[in-house]
Design a protein around this nucleic acid. Structure first.
Ligand code: SF4
Ligand code: SF4
Lengths: 134, 134
DNA sequence: CCCTAACAAGACATTTTTTATCCTTTTAGG
DNA sequence: CCTAAAAGGATAAAAAATGTCTTGTTAGGG
């Protein structure tokens, strides 16, 4: 259980690659895809999602491509993952009140809250700078 | 991401209900299913899995039914979840070496290891006794 | 011995999610 | 204009989740 999808894995590979490039280097999607071994059309969709929320900046036309939207040290793995996979939700009752009619008295509910918190903490503690290495 | 499936949720509800019953009470599947609001045929499959690994004991025929295989304080939530959902695997590379050809030098790999460990710790720290309440 | 109660096991069906691919549109440079 | 490149939308195949159904097995009781 709790498995990251391909999409998530690809997303991370792609943006970490971007983070490892020189700051101002505009990268072609096709190059990124080849480098991290991901289908280019699929990666395109992923980067569109990144672009919409500003995780990456994109430029169209000749000389276009992608670069990071912020400094690598200011982008956490949590943001990246949630951008493409949605929020970290170990069980639907952690979304909010009323998702499960049992949540008020449920003894399991707090456990999922803790799981959510722990996972978020780990992912939030890692930035793209950490992942891109030196 | 990381969402528990219905199966997992149902499994927990079912076995927690069982843990909340008097120690020697043999429970009918149909009663459990009704009590925790789960399709009986689906819950049957789940309890069959429990039964195979000894989490619950089952008796057939008239007067048959289910009861816990061990004391509630000796069954962790981790066991219950893994019994029906499989191992906690945030990313396939945590399964073992060779699952991903990149795992040797991958900077993300250790992060998933940490996530796995944290989640397991939380779930392992909760027993059915805790969940069944007084 | 037979009948009924209850779980076990396996096959089957439906829906949803994942994992893409393709085609058209928009934007920008030269 | 012509070409490069990303954006957006439609579509499709494969896999997983979510059940259901039928048949088999085990046990108790008359
Ligand atoms: S853990 Fe409790 S509150 Fe959450 S979905 Fe399950 S029953 Fe509902
Ligand atoms: S995190 Fe690294 S080792 Fe794990 S699957 Fe992704 S690339 Fe492979």
């Amino acid at each position: 259980m709790m498995e990251l999808t391909r999409k998530g894995e690809y997303a991370i590979r792609g943006i970490v690659y971007l983070a490892a490039q020189p700051d101002d280097k505009v990268c072609l999607l096709s190059d990124i895809a080849a480098a991290v071994d991901v289908p280019a059309t699929f990666l395109a969709k992923i980067f569109q999602q990144f672009s919409k929320i500003g995780l990456v900046k994109s430029y169209r036309g000749t000389g276009g491509g992608f670069l990071l939207g912020r400094l690598p040290e200011n982008i956490t793995l949590l943001e990246v993952v949630e951008a493409v996979e949605g929020p970290i939700i170990p069980n639907r009752c952690v979304v909010g009140a009323g998702e499960c009619t049992r949540d008020l008295s449920c003894t399991v509910h707090p456990v999922w809250k803790r799981v959510q918190e722990q996972v978020r903490n780990v992912l939030e503690g890692v930035t793209l700078k950490d992942l891109a290495g030196e």
